[in-house]
């Protein structure tokens, strides 16, 4: 037995990589065995992990699904794939949360922001110089599609209010608050604890600067409602928002989303 593109294949003595190409991946032009690129005539051994890649080809939905199954175990992947997550605000927190969730295959996301990509965003937000001036919703949708083109990404390009939060996110499993403005952070949590009660919620407060890693914490506020951050470090002159610490908080948020989806919290 050996593994070709993560799937088991019968092994025979004297087998070479070239023998597999026609049946597994016609047109493959890049061959990886046990993590290293090799030539097509490489002789294989039982238990080898082989990857046959056709450069420039985008994997099909089934192929990506299979890979995520194999990486995460079927039970986990199935629940993550069926999930719907809303993200409010697509700045340093929201763009990083969206990327992390797209990578693990969260099947449906609703992304909301009213802002455009500006040069000052690039020190912490997942946008690129060639996206300056684009709506963040569009720029992020484009980037997520480069990670996994088979996800359902819906976007709304508008400034949220308490009313629209209560209306837009009624069908998500978990809502992630990634606003910059503390007034909107408070407004969103009020909605989460009243009109959207029962929906998972992960907010954030206190993510600026370059303070101690371990002061960024995830606190439970109510059933399936959590806040991430140190609670104190506001964005201010001399204490700007920077990719590393905002990223620590964003990934705590993303992991908390996964924990809620998997019923761990």
């Amino acid at each position: 037995m050996l593994w070709v593109n993560e799937r088991p294949q019968p092994f025979a003595e004297g087998m070479r990589l070239a023998n597999l190409i026609a049946s597994v991946k016609p047109g493959a032009d890049l061959f990886i065995v046990n993590g290293f690129p090799v030539a097509a005539d490489t002789e294989l051994r039982a238990g080898d992990h082989c990857w046959l890649i056709k450069r420039g080809e985008i994997p099909s939905p089934d192929e990506i699904d299979f890979l995520l199954h194999a990486r995460h175990t079927p039970g986990v992947h199935q629940r993550v794939r069926m999930a719907a997550v809303g993200i409010m605000g697509l700045g340093g927190l929201g763009s990083a949360v969206a990327l992390a969730l797209a990578r693990i295959g969260v099947g449906r996301m609703l992304l909301v922001d009213f802002d455009l990509v500006e040069p000052t965003n690039l020190n912490r937000q997942h946008y690129f110089v060639d996206q300056i001036g684009m709506a963040k919703t569009e720029a992020l949708r484009e980037t997520l599609a480069r990670v996994n083109p088979h996800l359902q990404i819906a976007t709304v390009n508008e400034r949220l209010t308490a009313q629209s939060i209560g209306r837009l996110f009624v069908d998500v499993d978990v809502l992630v608050e990634c606003f910059d403005d503390p007034v909107m952070k408070a407004e969103a949590l009020r909605v989460a604890l009243t009109d959207l009660k029962g929906i998972g919620y992960v907010g954030a407060s206190g993510v600026a600067g370059f303070g101690d890693n371990n002061t960024i914490r995830t606190s439970r506020i109510a059933d399936r409602v959590f806040l991430v951050g140190d609670g104190e470090s506001a964005a201010a002159p001399g204490q700007g928002l920077m990719a590393p610490r905002v990223g620590v908080a964003a990934h705590q948020q993303a992991n908390q989303v996964v924990r809620i989806l998997l019923g761990e919290d």
Binding site: G94, P182, V183, K185, L189, S205, A234, L241
Partner: peptide, 8 residues
């Protein structure tokens, strides 16, 4: 009371 600070 839960107080929020800005930044995200």
């Amino acid at each position: 009371l839960i107080r929020f600070v800005g930044g995200g």
